[in-house]
């Protein structure tokens, strides 16, 4: 039934930083657990019963079966209540919703992934998708920017990516506090795009991060000559249903929850009231 979630159990809660944690859920219904499938960039509506619902990107990979992982920032009612939950608690999940990244278009070409802060959440799913079938992509580059070393989400996983030779992954932080060790880049995210140095032709770019991050990264990508049609961004809008019914996510004339949240930069700038 539309709008009615499936119950799921919180099986694991992993602390990432004071604001963010990774939550792993298992659907209570065995049939749902097995049939639930999604593509990277899609999201679920997460219910904390008695508190409400919030749209959250799926951060686990589509090939990881049996569970769903969400990386959530504590931002208000629902996300706050989620952080207060203990393992074994019951939540509701419905979805997956949204279009997700056009992986069929991306496959066969080069892929550049640029994430800022929590923007890594949907992109982590895409990265996992790529790692699972690395041979289907030509060059793969990943740039991830965070405020400081403490706020690099999934730092262990990200370090493993840096160590890989079949992927060019560079991490970047704005600044490094004194007592901190950091061997990644220090400075702007736009600088690591230069260092990753991906070809322009035949490259899809997936970008996700906070508004200021978009501003600088998009400027940079355009100046390098990437086509607006090859840059994919994820839009955040208020969402109450995820089904193209409640109206809240409409931007211009499009429902972000159905036609998005992934839009090419070209489609995005053709929507009025985009920023």
């Amino acid at each position: 039934m539309s709008l009615v979630p499936q119950t799921a159990t919180l099986v694991e809660k992993r602390y990432l930083d004071p604001q963010h944690s990774l939550f792993r859920f298992v659907f209570d219904d065995e049939g749902v657990r097995e049939s639930f499938s999604f593509s990277p960039g899609q999201f679920v509506m997460l219910s904390i019963f008695g508190v409400g619902e919030a749209p959250i990107s799926i951060t686990s990979g589509p090939d990881e079966k049996g569970f769903v992982e969400l990386c959530v920032r504590q931002a208000g009612r629902v996300t706050g209540a989620l952080h207060a939950l203990e393992e074994n608690a019951t939540v509701g999940l419905r979805g997956p919703y949204g279009n997700g990244y056009p992986v069929d278009v991306m496959e066969g070409g080069n892929l550049l992934i640029v994430a800022g802060g929590l923007g890594i959440a949907p992109l982590r799913s895409l990265i996992r998708y790529v790692l699972y079938r690395r041979d289907r992509f030509r060059e793969v580059g990943i740039g991830y920017g965070a405020r400081n070393p403490e706020s690099v989400l999934f730092s262990g996983e990200m370090q493993n990516l840096v160590a890989r030779t079949d992927i060019k992954c560079i991490l970047s932080v704005d600044s490094v506090p004194e007592a901190c060790r950091w061997d990644g880049h220090v400075g702007r995210v736009t600088e690591i795009i230069d260092r990753i140095n991906m070809p322009i032709e035949g490259t899809s770019v997936a970008v996700c991060g906070p508004p200021v991050f978009y501003k600088f990264v998009l400027e940079k990508l355009l100046s390098l000559g990437y086509s607006k049609g090859s840059i994919y961004m994820s839009l955040e809008r208020r969402m109450e249903c995820g089904l193209g019914k409640c109206g809240h996510c409409v931007v211009g004339h499009k429902y972000t929850c159905i036609e998005g949240p992934i839009f090419t930069y070209w489609d995005a700038i053709n929507l009025p009231e985009i920023f």
């Binding site: 008695g50 409400g52 009612r77 706050g80 209540a81």
Partner: peptide, 11 residues
């Protein structure tokens, strides 16, 4: 009260 008893600001 339904919200407050859960420790959540009411909507």
């Amino acid at each position: 009260l339904g919200y407050l008893l859960k420790g959540v600001t009411p909507e």
